[in-house]
Design a protein around this nucleic acid. Structure first.
Length: 268
DNA sequence: GCCCAGGTATAAA
DNA sequence: TTTATACATGGG
């Protein structure tokens, strides 16, 4: 078991169940069970002590990185709070959100599945994808490698019941496995090129590309814009554009998303 | 049954 | 270039 002390700016529900990751489930006692860093794990927070119980090999550095524990969110919030009064309110409300460092391929694939879909069903599809095609390790199923899915037929992948997204999953797997879309090089590309490259995949549009870059590549200036966020921007930040939030616009976006979701009365 | 869900591809205007 | 519609599936 790993215990990390003096953890701040972390709320497990806000971080693991805010729609950036799809493999975590809340347990009745407030802990979260899921799979990341190549192992199954149960996370629980007791005050400022984070407990991580792994089903397999434990690596504290991996978890520090995954949960972004070494990034200065307190300072980010201070900076964002000066930007706009409503953003200050949102940042305080959602102050336990951290942007995870997830696997790029898993993130890309998960957000392809997310299109025109709801979080509950996205989780189910991702789980079936792992169960049916993922490597088994220490009693859990890891997210299937692109190479594993690339060799499958549509009829096989259809069994995860992803609907019309099945063909997109296969296209993504094939382009990633072949190197036509080289995820390792995307990490160093200018944002514009990175977006363009991801959108070579059928089923990847501006929203999925932006989510992949923010949640899978930790490009914190990315700002996924769906209909909800457009509305939130228009009503809460009239006249402003994502770039106005600066280099941490993606964190601002997540604060705003969570805050506005929990306060529907903000909208006329 | 109808509507919606952290969109996108495609066709038509 | 902009706007409309279909798309699979499952829960409310």
């Amino acid at each position: 078991m790993i215990v990390i002390h003096d953890v701040t700016d972390l709320d497990l529900e806000q971080t693991l169940d805010c729609g950036q990751a799809f493999r975590w489930r809340a347990c009745p006692d407030g802990s979260y069970k899921g799979t990341a860093c190549g192992v199954g794990a149960v996370l629980s927070l007791d005050g400022s002590s984070l407990k991580i119980e792994c089903a397999g090999e434990e690596n504290e550095d991996d978890w520090r990185h995954y949960l972004d524990l070494d990034f200065p969110y307190t300072q980010v919030r201070e900076k964002l709070s000066k930007c706009h009064a409503v953003l200050k309110e949102a940042a305080e409300y959602a102050s336990g959100i951290r942007i995870l460092n997830q696997e790029p391929w898993e993130t890309l694939c998960s957000f392809i599945i997310s299109q025109n879909n709801n979080i509950q069903r996205i989780k189910g599809i991702v789980e079936r994808l792992c169960d049916m095609f993922g490597e088994r390790k220490d009693g859990v199923c890891l997210f299937p490698a692109a190479e594993e899915l690339a060799g499958r037929r549509i009829s096989e992948i259809s069994e995860v019941r992803a609907g019309f997204r099945t063909k997109y999953i296969l296209d993504a797997a094939q382009k990633v496995a072949s190197g036509e879309v080289d995820l390792s090089s995307i990490a160093e590309m200018p944002l514009h090129n990175a977006r363009h490259t991801l959108m070579k995949i059928s089923g990847v549009g501006p929203k999925v590309a932006e989510c992949t870059l923010l949640y899978g590549f930790h490009r914190l200036e990315c700002f996924p814009m769906d209909v909800w966020m457009k509305r939130a921007m228009a009503e809460l930040f009239p006249g402003m554009v994502p770039a106005d939030f600066g280099e941490y616009a993606g964190i601002a976006q997540q604060y705003i998303f969570h805050y506005s979701r929990m306060h529907p009365e903000l909208f006329g």
